[in-house]
């Protein structure tokens, strides 16, 4: 399978994300500039962390209007996997590909530390390699990660099993301790923590590996199925 990592002006986790995918899956990864208009050649697309367009106006607000995000929107409709990490999650909410919004942390601090997450859904293409309720260690690095949505939206996310990860101890004041959510079709995941920074023992955790491996396994099974039916 083939992966794309979209690079916006101000992205700074793009190389890390690409390296993490290569290490965890052995797959080919392209870094794709934000003016790309066609991403149909890729099986999975990552919107990386950073400060796209300087986070002017609001985090992710300007990136939403880039050609690459329009292309992402088409691939989401096609059922391709899209993973938004940190600033990528903010871009996905601003683009309405995921509900809610990410606000300034309730204590105003920028938090850069290892946090414990609870896996709330292990049937999605992104989380199938984890155990339900498993506690994993993934680092965060954000000042605006407080997930906010109205109570009906949060209830809907909960009832539909679309809360993928929760914080064991919330570092930002997110509603329902939400750290990562799935889109309506289950093929979009946005999360504030950085799985690409939990790939080797020397990083303090290898728990991020299985997220990329889940995606790899899901796509490869789909491709094998398509070949068998061809």
């Amino acid at each position: 399978m083939k992966w794309a990592v979209v690079v916006f002006p101000g992205s700074n986790c793009d190389e890390d994300a690409a390296q993490a995918v290569r290490e965890a899956t052995g797959d080919a990864v392209d870094l794709v500039w934000h003016d790309a208009t066609d991403l149909s050649a890729y099986d999975a697309i990552i919107l990386p962390g950073g400060f796209s367009y300087g986070d002017y106006l609001r985090s992710g607000a300007i990136a939403r209007f880039s050609p690459a995000v329009e292309a992402v929107r088409r691939e989401v409709a096609e059922g391709k996997l899209v993973l938004g990490i940190c600033n990528g999650f903010q871009v996905l909410t601003e683009s309405h590909l995921l509900p809610g919004a990410l606000l300034r942390n309730n204590h105003l601090q920028f938090r850069c530390e290892m946090v414990e997450l609870i896996v709330d859904n292990n049937t999605s293409p992104f989380t199938r390699a984890y155990q339900l309720g498993e506690r994993i260690q993934i680092p965060i690095a954000h000042g605006e990660g407080r997930f906010h949505a109205d109570p009906e939206t949060v209830a809907g996310l909960r009832n539909e099993g679309r809360i993928a990860f929760r914080y064991a101890d919330s570092p930002n004041g997110s509603v329902a301790d939400i750290a990562g959510i799935l889109g309506e079709g289950g093929n979009v995941l946005g999360l504030m923590p950085h799985p690409e920074r939990a790939i080797f023992d020397w990083m303090g955790s290898v728990d991020g590996r299985r997220l990329f491996q889940s995606m790899h396994q899901y796509v490869e099974e789909g491709l094998a199925h398509a070949r068998a039916n061809a």
Binding site: L57, A61, T93, E94, P99, G100, A101, L103, H148
Partner: peptide
Amino acid sequence: RVLSNPVM
């Protein structure tokens, strides 16, 4: 559409 985010 741009200047504010009606979600928040």
